[in-house]
Computed example of a mutant assay.
Amino acid sequence: MALRGSKVWLWRWRRNPLKRRADRVEAWVVLGVWTLTAFVGMLAGTTVSRSVEDGLARERVEWRPLVARLDERAPGRASESGGVSRTEQVWAKATWTAEDGSTHSGQLRVPAGSAAGTPVTVWTDPEGRQVTRPVTESQAQVRAFLIGSVAGIGAAALPLVGGRALRRRLERLRMDQWDAEWSRFGPMWGRTTG
């Protein structure tokens, strides 16, 4: 077990006759790296989060539900009661008309056994292309927070890794200085005068 003294607040900036220039540089590097890491992480995280949330809000405004009609009977069979099964969903081809009058078709998830011509809801973008249902506002906030957090952590890792590499280089320089001084004064160790 290593013995450690009490923690001294701001020890890197206190006066000490044994402190070298490399120690002072390292103290400022540590402060700068942590400040830059926090700043870059927050900036990247909030920027990406806002961008994602704005994009999802734009989708909620632009994407519209349209009524599509099944081109053929959906695979599978209807429930025993003769109705359409609401639990089993299958892919079936449907056709819809966009707001601009153009006709589109695509595969949609529908209840198994649905008859040809059955109306189903399809979400489309302004050009009439099929899209997924847009997320709700609360889902958009959660998604934006998660994506922004990942982006912020990833961006903050860059200055942190750079700072660690710089500190490692400073440590190597400090050890080289100590080796040079030890080789100069080490042979004198244990000599007696007189």
Rank of each mutant, 00 (worst) to 15 (best):
T37W: 01
R24L: 07
T87Q: 09
A94C: 11
S102A: 14
S85T: 15
K93D: 11
L56C: 13
S6A: 15
K19E: 02
R20V: 14
A115V: 08
A98P: 13
G106Q: 00
R15C: 04
L56Q: 15
W13P: 00
R58I: 01
G117D: 07
R77S: 10
L108E: 11
D23E: 14
L108H: 09
S105P: 00
P65D: 02
A74E: 07
V84D: 10
S51F: 11
E80H: 04
A68P: 07
T35V: 14
P75K: 02
A27S: 10
V67W: 02
V48G: 14
A78L: 01
L10E: 05
S85Y: 07
L3S: 10
L108F: 05
V8P: 14
T35L: 15
W34S: 12
V8R: 15
S105W: 00
E59H: 08
S49E: 14
T47F: 13
G82M: 05
V30W: 00
W28Y: 12
V25D: 10
M42C: 12
V40A: 06
L31T: 13
V120D: 06
S51Y: 12
L43W: 11
L31R: 03
R109I: 10
V48F: 10
L3M: 06
A94M: 05
V30P: 02
G101M: 00
P119N: 05
R60K: 06
G45D: 12
V40I: 08
R20E: 09
W63L: 03
R109W: 12
T103E: 15
A112F: 00
A57L: 06
V84K: 13
W63R: 05
A112M: 03
R77N: 06
R50T: 13
A27H: 05
A27K: 06
V52M: 03
E62H: 06
L108C: 11
A38I: 02
E26V: 00
V48I: 14
S105D: 04
K19Y: 01
T103C: 08
L56N: 15
V29H: 02
L3D: 12
D100Q: 01
M42S: 13
G32Q: 12
V67A: 06
R15Q: 04
Q107F: 05
A22M: 05
S81N: 10
R21V: 10
L36C: 13
R64D: 02
E59W: 00
R50W: 12
R24T: 15
